[in-house]
Design a protein around this nucleic acid. Structure first.
Lengths: 224, 224
DNA sequence: GCAATCTTTATAAAATCTTTATAATCAGCC
DNA sequence: GGCTGATTATAAAGATTTTATAAAGATTGC
């Protein structure tokens, strides 16, 4: 958390409400009532998200948004009392990322704030255990920050173990998922590749911390 | 335009309506009624945006979304008849980028589609990695400042790799995007053209730094 | 027809997987 | 505890698959 959010809203009650709401989520909030002041601040200090009320006193919110978008691509959530379709379309086409109409639910607004912070900071949904990280989007594994090259089979096994973290997977389950149903009588395949994975991922392959053996049953990835 | 949009919606009337609506904007639309089929398609061929109806017959839309997000970060707009706050919050926290409730205005939906396409495909004026630069507007590639001539096929492959920087693209994905769906059994096409690209772009084509092979899987453009 | 490009093909090289042998470890039993 | 048979770990050789590359043939557009 601790993302910085700029609120541009000229109704004092609403400004105060938004500030309080966002601070409950540990966000740092900068509130403004006037468009010019907000722009000046943004030039000085970038923020992670902007909440914009269209009904400003000193200038038109749509114009403000259009002007902002000429140089800044920070996500903007528009908050407005205007329910008309054409207002929404105009704001979105002016570069808004989302449009919320008053009255709105606090929980929904916070969820939309989270969503917009998330997709702008494309932090991958990565699995990690210890100093090992697996990023299924990039199909990439790293150890202590350094990329580790895994073969297709090794990667498939690790992904399978991660998707069932802390559970025991039998040889047959691994063989079926990775090699296919007809390979259930080749447990040695799993052993050889598991040894390879340990060589690449464990600090002490002979005394594995993550890739544990369950004798007589199968293997388990310990996430702790 | 010409972005590809996947629609997952099990009501035939709504599916048809969405398809028609999106096609008026020159989008390429792939419609599905079942979650499994849609996932299978996405693995084969990435899209630019996903419209998801939460009320699927064969599985829970929220589960589908969570599963998708474990490996895919394509923008998702949820369309739902459920107006409850907790449904919205859950969907947004599951990784949805936007949430639209039925009944919705066509113009607003299209505006939200535009907004989500725009913000997730930042209008990079030029991609670059190392001393290589690709300008999609001029359709021009240069290396260390000097223009490099690429054939149409070479350029298409490079652009595709750049749009999915650092991700692995399978042979099938490359073949489908560049040659078409009926070429998925010709991986040698990709190999030959990839070798050409390396000759033109890499300092040491035999030991590529950018255009990496992932044996058994596909190719990856390494930007980092 | 010519030049550029794409497709096809053949061969060499590289990477990975499978197989095998041996050593280590484990579980049950006396 | 120590023995025994079964299971597991590991390295390394062998086999197979996958990939790189050049070059010849086919196609396309001007």
């Amino acid at each position: 958390m601790a993302e910085t959010i700029l609120v541009l809203e000229d109704d004092p009650a609403m400004q105060s409400f938004l500030g309080t709401l966002l601070k409950t989520q540990q966000h740092q909030v900068h509130s403004f009532s006037e468009g010019i002041a907000a722009l000046q601040h943004l030039v000085q200090q970038p923020v992670d998200l902007i909440l914009l009320d269209l009904g400003l006193a000193d200038m038109d919110g749509q114009l403000w948004l259009a002007q902002l978008r000429s140089w800044c691509d920070t996500p903007v959530i528009v908050i407005s009392a205007r329910h008309r379709e054409q207002d929404k379309v105009q704001a979105l086409d002016n570069g808004a990322n989302d449009y919320v109409t008053k009255p709105f639910s606090a929980a929904e607004l916070l969820a939309r704030v989270r969503a917009n912070l998330r997709h702008n900071t494309p932090q991958q949904q990565a699995f990690s255990f210890g100093n090992i990280r697996l990023d299924p989007v990039l199909r990439q594994v790293s150890r202590a920050g350094a990329e580790v090259h895994l073969t297709k089979t090794e990667y498939d096994i690790l992904l399978l173990l991660m998707r069932h973290a802390d559970k025991v997977l039998t040889h047959n389950q691994i063989l079926t998922q990775v090699w296919g149903k007809t390979y259930t009588d080749r447990p040695e395949y799993v052993r050889v590749h598991m040894a390879q994975l340990r060589q690449k991922l464990e600090d002490t392959p002979a005394a594995p911390v993550y890739l544990k053996t369950e004798p007589g049953v199968g293997y388990r990835l310990k996430m702790t």
